[in-house]
Amino acid sequence: MRILAWHVHAAWMTSFVQGPHEYYVPVLPDRGPDGMGRAQTYPWPESVREITPEELRTADFDVVVLQRPHELGLFQRWAGRSLGRYGVPAVYVEHNTPRGDVNDWQHPLADRTDIPIVHVTQFNRTMWDNGRAPAAVIDHGVPDYGYQYSGDIDSLVVSVNEPVRRWRVAGIDLVRQIAEQVPVSVFGMGADELTAHIHSGLADVGEADQDGLHKRMAMHFAYLHPYRWTSLGLSLIEAMTLGMPVLVVSATAAPEAVPATAGLVSSNVDLLAATALRWLVDPDEAREKGMAARAHALEYFGLPRFLDDWDRMLKEVCR
């Protein structure tokens, strides 16, 4: 199957392109948001090829995987064809939770009956008003990066990009609160900016490529997932596959994704901090939680299940 999809979310796309198909990603000279081309820091297979807007005019695809509303217009302008019932089959992946007033949570494709909306969590499907559009859920899948947990560093770790801009959405104010009791390290694009906003409790900040990030994360004694409003951060699932015990703010899809055996999911920030302090003096409990987290993540968020689900969806769309 020949699939066109924009490179939008590198971590999700890294899992998606592991299937047995040919994948084409638009590329522009500046490699901006509408043409990033192949990932530079993630391991993508050779089956992923870059394609220019000019080449789209004559290229044939079995299906287009959309991830942003304006991509419908981009495809029509660049390829000179429409999508859906009277054009190339398409499916829309909704990665995000809705924003704004709850009464305005209508999905941009709610009036389309010919392009299914695939949500990445059950929470997302429930929160969005999908209107007349067919709506389905394909839960996240992540590669198995192997058991890497050592827990040698007495610091919690958070993985988040642009933490200052995403302050409350990403729960960075909660990170600051927890850091008053337990050291916290933060890694991701723009993490260095935190030093101007959090003046104590930060053990380490910085950026790392994906492979380096996993190694650095797994050296810390537990993973902290402070997000208030995100569908389900892939960094949380990846931390679990590494064998890390997790402390998770009880929001959006997290309570359904993380079992009690893997750590603690709670909206009580003081309880999250207290549990972290307990694990510091009881590393055996932390390691046991991490082993359970890994087993759960491999069973429910493994790559084979994810790719099988997507194969079924793409075949259905192309029928």
Score class of each variant (00 low, 15 high):
residue 212 G to S: 12
residue 92 Y to R: 00
residue 168 R to Y: 01
residue 246 V to Y: 05
residue 164 V to K: 07
residue 180 E to T: 15
residue 118 V to D: 05
residue 25 V to F: 04
residue 306 F to I: 10
residue 155 S to D: 01
residue 301 F to C: 14
residue 159 S to H: 09
residue 12 W to M: 10
residue 191 A to D: 05
residue 139 D to Y: 14
residue 139 D to P: 11
residue 206 G to F: 02
residue 114 D to M: 04
residue 197 H to E: 10
residue 237 I to S: 09
residue 245 P to M: 07
residue 308 D to F: 12
residue 49 R to E: 11
residue 298 L to W: 03
residue 311 D to R: 15
residue 230 T to C: 02
residue 124 N to T: 05
residue 221 F to D: 00
residue 277 L to G: 11
residue 136 A to L: 14
residue 147 Y to V: 01
residue 46 E to K: 08
residue 99 R to N: 01
residue 52 T to S: 15
residue 264 L to R: 07
residue 129 D to H: 14
residue 234 L to S: 08
residue 82 S to W: 07
residue 272 L to R: 04
residue 97 T to E: 07
residue 101 D to Q: 13
residue 248 V to S: 13
residue 176 R to N: 12
residue 82 S to L: 11
residue 257 A to S: 11
residue 89 P to F: 09
residue 147 Y to A: 05
residue 109 L to E: 04
residue 46 E to F: 03
residue 93 V to Y: 04
residue 298 L to Q: 09
residue 184 V to H: 02
residue 261 T to M: 03
residue 35 G to A: 08
residue 162 E to L: 14
residue 271 L to I: 12
residue 281 V to I: 09
residue 223 Y to G: 09
residue 277 L to E: 14
residue 219 M to L: 05
residue 64 V to S: 10
residue 142 V to N: 08
residue 32 G to H: 03
residue 131 G to V: 08
residue 85 R to D: 15
residue 235 S to F: 06
residue 107 H to A: 08
residue 140 H to R: 13
residue 125 R to G: 03
residue 308 D to V: 09
residue 80 G to F: 03
residue 209 D to E: 14
